[in-house]
Simulated scan of single mutants.
Amino acid sequence: MTVPLSILDLAPVKSGGTPGQALHDTIDLARRAEEFGYLRYWLAEHHLAPGVASSAPQVLIALVAAATERIRVGSGAVQTGHWTALAIAEQFATIDALYPGRIDLGLGRSGQRRKELYEGTAAPPPAEEPRIVDGLLLPRPFDFSILASSPVVRLFGSLLQQPGAESPDFAEQVDAISALLDGSFATEGVPAHVVPGENSDLTVWILGSSGGESARVAGERGLPFAANYHVAPSHVLEAVEAYRAAFKPSDVLSEPYVSVSADVVVAPTDEEARELAAPYPVWVRSIRRELRAIPYPTAEEAAAHVWTEEDRLLVADRVDTQFVGSPATVVERLETLRRVTGADELLVTTITHGHEERVRSYGLLAEAWNNLTA
Rank of each mutant, 00 (worst) to 15 (best):
A85R: 00
L60Q: 07
Y362H: 15
E119R: 08
L207Q: 10
H230M: 09
V264D: 06
A123K: 10
Y296R: 07
H305G: 01
F247I: 03
H24V: 06
E116S: 02
L137R: 09
A303M: 10
T373F: 00
Y118C: 02
V282L: 13
S209D: 11
D169L: 09
L48A: 11
V315E: 02
F247E: 13
L207F: 12
S209L: 15
R72D: 11
R216A: 04
A192Q: 03
I71Q: 02
T349Q: 13
A89V: 01
L276H: 09
R288E: 05
Y229R: 03
L372I: 13
G108H: 05
A226Y: 02
G135E: 14
G81L: 02
A171M: 05
F225R: 12
S6E: 00
A67D: 14
T308Q: 08
G111F: 06
T373Q: 01
Y99Q: 10
F36H: 09
A148L: 09
D169M: 10
A215M: 02
L10M: 05
P163Q: 06
D143G: 04
L29I: 11
I351F: 10
M1H: 11
G164K: 05
T80R: 01
L48H: 03
F323Q: 12
T187P: 00
A245D: 15
T94S: 11
V264Q: 04
G135Q: 11
G108D: 11
G76D: 05
Q79Y: 02
H46V: 08
A165Q: 05
G37H: 04
E241A: 05
A303K: 03
S250I: 03
G183I: 09
L314V: 01
I95V: 14
L107W: 00
I287C: 01
S150W: 06
Y243V: 06
G17Y: 13
N370G: 09
E301N: 07
A239H: 08
A374F: 08
R102V: 12
S167A: 15
V13C: 12
R102M: 04
A93C: 00
E213M: 07
G183K: 14
L253C: 07
S145I: 04
R285K: 13
E309I: 10
V52C: 12
G76V: 10
V258N: 07
G219K: 10
L291T: 01
G81R: 03
L136E: 12
T329M: 07
W205G: 06
R70S: 14
S286M: 04
G51Q: 13
E301C: 08
S234L: 07
A127L: 12
V264T: 11
R333T: 11
T308Y: 14
P281G: 05
L180W: 07
L347P: 03
G219E: 15
A343Q: 09
E272V: 08
A273K: 10
A89G: 04
A192V: 14
P327S: 04
S55G: 15
L365F: 06
T18P: 11
I294V: 12
V340T: 07
R102G: 08
D96N: 05
A277E: 02
A366I: 01
S200T: 15
